[in-house]
């Protein structure tokens, strides 16, 4: 797929030089991380997300031959509030600045894209707001979370989740480069899985914690460098996030596979940690039903008041 493609490994600053040198027709900016990486932590993450995007967009703005800009964003751009509508369309504004670092970075990046659109209105700028990606092989903080045998959840909350299959995300990206689709698009699989439902379907065991305990616990673990579950994930698990994808389907002429189908594929590749599988439940159901039938048959065969075996004489 990448035959005949020259690859340049460079950090954001060097990438800006490369853009200036190559005078490209299209710039696709995907370097956005959702969790703090090991060396550098949150500072490095912000450096890459915000400063990196700023530099790339500045370089793109200076490229005179540019016709197209594609920027990866996330549905985290809608923030998380209790007064949010249940389904976000592309026009929904976040009600407050979100507390999660990734969501804040996303809002900054989209702000830079807005500035870019103002200054270079002739360039077709596409912003793709991706739902959390999932597939049999993808490795994200969310897939690691669902791969655990016991999954921590928020007590008294059950989030509505949506996923997008990695291949569908790539297809949308591909089409946004070879076709012209200026604007902002939600990219997610249709349908909704509740967090509890997703945990049950994957055969895992949910372990609910109060929200405050989960926040402090996650912060402690983060300091120890164990698991990278952050405020972004906790906000997602408290509020849930569902987007409307009718604009994507209409403009791109492409329907990503549904959330349930994408998640099903993930489950099939991660059966190792599951304890309560659908098969085991079905077996248990049959066993209990047979047991009850046998007990009832025995009770009916023995009329009340007549001790068993008394008719043998």
């Amino acid at each position: 797929m990448l035959a005949g493609v020259e690859r340049i490994r460079a950090d954001a600053r060097a990438a800006t030089e490369a853009i200036a040198e190559l005078d490209p027709e299209a710039v696709v900016h995907l370097a956005v991380t959702s969790v703090p990486a090991e060396p550098g932590g949150r500072a490095a993450m912000k450096e890459q997300n915000v400063i990196g995007s700023m530099q790339v967009l500045a370089a793109a703005q200076a490229a005179s031959g540019l016709r197209k800009l594609v920027v990866r964003s996330s549905t985290a751009a809608y923030g998380a509030s209790f007064r949010d509508p249940a389904v976000f369309t592309e026009d929904t504004e976040p009600r407050a600045v979100p507390r999660g670092p990734f969501a804040r970075d996303i809002l900054d990046i989209e702000g830079y894209v807005r500035g870019f659109r103002r200054r270079r209105p002739e360039v077709a700028a596409t912003v793709l707001r991706f739902a959390p990606m999932i597939s049999s092989t993808a490795e994200t903080s969310l897939t690691r979370y669902f791969a655990q045998p016991v999954v921590p959840t928020v007590l008294g909350r059950d989030a509505r989740l949506q996923f997008v299959h990695v291949e569908d995300a790539l297809e949308v990206l591909h089409r946004s480069v070879i076709e012209d689709h200026p604007g902002t698009y939600n990219v997610a699989g249709a349908g909704v899985l509740m967090l509890s439902q997703a945990v049950r379907r994957s055969g895992r065991v949910a372990l609910p914690f109060p929200e405050s305990a989960l926040s402090t616990g996650a912060a402690l673990l983060r300091n120890l460098g164990v698991e990278q579950i952050g405020l972004d994930q906790i906000d997602l698990f408290v509020h849930g996030r569902v987007v409307d994808t009718s604009r994507l389907i209409r403009e791109f002429g492409f329907t990503p596979r549904t959330t349930a189908v994408a998640f099903e594929e993930f489950i099939r590749a991660h059966t190792a940690g599951s304890t309560v599988t659908a098969d085991r439940l079905a077996t248990a159901e049959r066993a209990i039903l047979d047991g009850i039938r046998r007990v009832r048959a025995a009770a009916e065969a023995t009329p009340a008041g007549v001790p068993a075996g008394s008719d043998r004489s």
Binding site: A86, V87, R160, G191, L193, M194, S196, R200, R201
Partner: peptide
């Protein structure tokens, strides 16, 4: 988890 939930939950 074999049930359907709509987008409003």
């Amino acid at each position: 988890g074999a049930y359907e939930v709509d987008e409003f939950g």
